[in-house]
Nucleic acid binder design. Structure first.
Lengths: 243, 243
DNA sequence: GGGGAGAGATGCCGC
DNA sequence: GCGGCATTTCTCCCC
């Protein structure tokens, strides 16, 4: 155990990432206070100060610190501690380590950003490009107009020229989506000084209760699925790699 | 590179966790489609099928698979691939590995649950135990009554005997909290067939706009901070460890 | 920095 | 399974 603190401190100093597999207890104090009894965990510390503590199961880290935290590892009378703290956010992590199974430190280089297709924004973009997905005669207005009235996904006019707010949801729309749509419609009526504004929810599906609420308020549901296709050059890249 | 697939497959077969540090590209297809260009990443695969892919910075994994996914590693004409798929959820991850810097596999044992203090539920519990935090004369009703009217944090009567809904927020309350409170109040009025029900938001602070909305609707804000103290035996445990 | 909203949100509980 | 809601939510964008 004696050599771990020196190895750890050197890795931190060099801005290396640190991977630790250990049997440990974990205390966290910050937004809340928490205690995790003794067990095996995987700990990852990144070069921006992020720390995640994972149990052997589960999607999410059981404990974590946000970017900007600093770390130290100390051995005191045979007891190993790993301490992290984010002074600005007043968050503290204390790990009492009973046994380190493995520790790996390494510089990681990565400047890449992920490309994602199928988000709500992609849905809005698709509707802007093909307004007939909403209904015949629907015409989106310029995108710059949108922000002036709030975070409206697509603003347009229907075939009769009535101002229409379209709220997109990439998954099933719920009653909160209906409330959100209503807020936008009310805001638009006040802002423009008009009495008639239509509201449309565009989503793959809608909850039955939300559909009732929608109809009560005089709004409309339109079934639209988010597009899930990355740009062609990526698809080709993947295809070429695989076949 | 040749020995990695055998090591990996054996680890998966034995239900070991797998840690990999690698230079790679990542494709994901499922809820959305995504592509992450070549760079250094840390990959963790847990024994329940969870996979997380981390870039050198940032709180969250850049890609992940949920519990139940299965994995294989293959070397084909000198090209290493790590593939994961969750058949039930129709989610797929493909990692094209250019270089493995390190790989560690190990059985992890952990059956512990985290204890957390300072959540919204803790706030509600604190108010149940000390109702004067809300106002003089406030009396909570039995906890069993709560669920019948929805997810009401604390239901009680004020000093005049008027039914009162308390909605707790552990952080600053916003206008959505006000809308939520209003839903509960409306639901209670209908359900009980009464016309007067009070609404109170208990939180450390409230947004100025939300406070306006609150007053418009005739509701009240009470400043309450969530309790952040773990049970005594844990505090003592920590104290004893540290001093 | 505050406010508003999305996220491949996740996770929990209750029906 | 759906529904409603909290989360140490996190993240992004805009004012």
């Amino acid at each position: 155990m004696q050599h771990y603190p020196a190895l750890f401190e050197e890795a931190i100093r060099k801005n290396h990432a640190v991977f630790i597999s250990a049997k440990c207890e974990v205390w966290y104090s910050g937004q809340v206070e928490s205690y995790l009894p003794l067990g095996d965990r995987v700990i990852l510390i990144k070069d921006d100060g992020v720390m995640v503590v994972h149990q052997p199961q589960g999607n999410n880290p059981i404990n974590y610190l946000k970017p900007g935290a600093t770390y130290s590892m100390t051995l005191n009378e045979g007891q190993l501690f790993l301490n992290g703290n984010n002074i600005k956010l007043k968050e503290f992590m204390d790990v009492k380590v009973q046994k380190i199974y493995a520790m790996h430190t390494q510089k990681l280089e990565d400047g890449q950003s992920i490309q994602v297709a199928g988000t709500e924004e992609d849905m809005a973009q698709m509707i802007m490009e093909k307004p007939s997905l909403i209904e015949a005669g629907f015409k989106p207005v310029a995108q710059e107009e949108q922000t002036k009235f709030g975070y409206i996904d697509v603003l347009g006019v229907d075939k009769k020229g009535i101002l229409t707010v379209v709220e997109c949801k990439r998954n099933q729309a719920d009653f909160k989506a209906v409330e959100q749509l209503q807020r936008y419609v009310e805001r638009l009526k006040e802002s423009k000084g008009i009495t008639e504004v239509r509201g449309i929810i565009a989503a793959p599906k809608i909850q039955s209760g939300a559909d009732l609420m929608l109809k009560e308020k005089g709004f409309t549901f339109v079934a639209v699925k988010p597009p899930k296709h990355l740009e062609r050059f990526n698809r080709n890249q993947k295809t070429l790699d695989f076949f």
